[in-house]
Design a protein around this nucleic acid. Structure first.
Lengths: 291, 291
DNA sequence: ACAATTAACGGACTCTAGTCAGAGAAATTC
DNA sequence: GAATTTCTCTGACTAGAGTCCGTTAATTGT
């Protein structure tokens, strides 16, 4: 009777009406949607035209004309890329910068109005949105290198430590010094830090550091609870193992705790085997894999 | 850093791209969105043009031309309303009926594809969608009369009984005979049944039945968990009290259980006071109010 | 060095949505 | 019964989004 399809349609109607208004926030700035979208996508450092086209999925001609329009308004300047002068790079002028800020704030205000309506249930609404977006983007998760000091990486690692606190007996809360003091160990060429992105939301992390010339240690594997059950853990592990191989390591190790049963099962199913302890508590299981 | 606004934007992007595809399911039928939307809104029994205009929020001229287009395709017939010949009523032809079915099935398939991606988390995704839609429609909840035997009313009452089972000690599961045998007692002129709608999703119910000529009993107040904390309970109670007054009752009663603390608090804060028992277990608190 | 490829551009065009004003028919009001 | 209102229809118009294609300039491959 009240089947899922009907609910999806209701959801669709409501969301396109309410949040879709965010898209049309171009209103009141005297500029059509297309131009506004282009303007908002131009980054501070300049964005090349091909990137814009890819992100907005626009025809070359159309984008070209939109850019001309923005140039005429004095908001954007397009110049050849010195590296490849066929390519062109769009940059915001000071006026464009200002206009960009206005759009950003308008969007901000609209969004806040949406959340205001959620009252005491803001967190629940945000979680619901994240769940939906993450499920829909399931096939589009990208794994990219990150600096271990990035906001995104820190966000993930902090969530990871919180998880350990809640799950692993004997993991003291004092163990959360942010920013982390040992970030340097997770940078190339000895280490690595990979973050999984669902659009611009980081939903997973894994890190690598050097134990000795032949051996790397995999650390801090964390998957956002919203993104579990989609094989992301395996993707991250394979990516970090490949990275370790690329960096010249022949062996990998990790320490963990049996309270993290899911993770242990993942390691085992992917060729990791138990090995003798090489660290202390709160770890109570140690594993190794030949790369 | 990863603030709520950014998440909302991500959500917005993803949803308009993915589910927005539902709207564009007109694709492949060789008919623009506007015409497809009109076609899908024409009901079997015929829909008058003003109703279509209101639902789609279209200009008279535009809708008129869309209807002409559908007539030219042989999908719709527009004729004067015999009751008021200025009005006109649009009806589906057999061909239109068939085309309508095609759209319905295409939409169905698209929706199913969305849910398929959720894998084992379908229910969580549906709940998340309902929560978001309900929060956004918060100010647009409509309370309407319902027949106690309607699907919507039964859906709510069943959920209510499930809640009682889970919450009230001594409430036996055997107490859920659906369809309910005593529906007649909740119909006019002696009783009533009000359902709260959020778009086309029923999210709350309250009923009224006769105790004696002067006294009515309020029964089965239920609010969907998704819609709590928005004052809907109070709105429903006030509506049913007003209805009782209109039906000529001067007093109202209800029985409840102290396990339902939130409900009891609502009653108290709205002028209900405890009264002597007039029913037995599982009720353990009885309240009355002069209307 | 020359051909093929790639990137962006700009003009001509189409389609859809939407606005506005006026006309005509039916119903309502005075 | 005349004036006013209500409802729909039509035609003229605008704007935005998008497609197609030929051109130009730079780069790459052989």
């Amino acid at each position: 009777m009240l089947d899922a399809i009907a609910r999806l349609r209701r959801f669709n109607r409501v969301v396109t009406r309410e949040i879709g208004a965010l898209d049309t926030s171009y209103l009141g700035r005297g500029r059509p949607l297309g131009a506004a979208r282009v303007l908002q996508l131009v980054k501070a450092g300049g964005t090349d035209v091909a990137e814009l086209r890819r992100r907005l999925d626009l025809d070359t001609g159309l984008l070209s004309r939109l850019l001309r329009g923005l140039e005429r308004e004095g908001l954007v300047e397009v110049a050849a890329d010195p590296a490849d002068r066929r390519r062109r790079i769009a940059r915001l002028t000071p006026a464009g910068e200002a206009e960009w800020q206005v759009y950003d704030q308008l969007g901000h205000a609209k969004a806040q109005a949406v959340f205001a309506r959620a009252g005491s249930r803001q967190q629940a609404v945000i979680d619901a949105m994240d769940l939906i977006a993450t499920v829909m983007l399931k096939d589009q998760v990208e794994i990219r290198d990150a600096d271990p000091d990035d906001d995104a990486a820190l966000h993930c690692v902090a969530a990871y430590y919180r998880l350990l606190q809640d799950t692993v007996p004997g993991f003291a809360s004092g163990m959360l010094p942010l920013p982390l003091p040992d970030a340097a160990r997770y940078r190339a060429p000895a280490g690595a830090c990979l973050v999984a992105w669902s659009e611009d939301l980081p939903i997973g992390v894994v890190s690598l550091r050097r134990l000795d010339t032949a051996t790397a240690e995999v650390k801090r594997l964390w998957i956002d609870p919203l993104a579990r059950g989609q094989g992301l853990g395996r993707r991250l592990m394979r990516a970090i193992e490949a990275r370790a191989r690329d960096l010249g390591y022949s062996h990998a190790r990790l320490d963990s705790n049996t309270a993290l049963a899911e993770a242990i099962a993942l390691y085992r199913s992917d060729g990791w085997t138990e090995c003798p302890p090489y660290t202390g508590a709160p770890a109570n299981i140690w594993m190794a894999k030949r790369l």
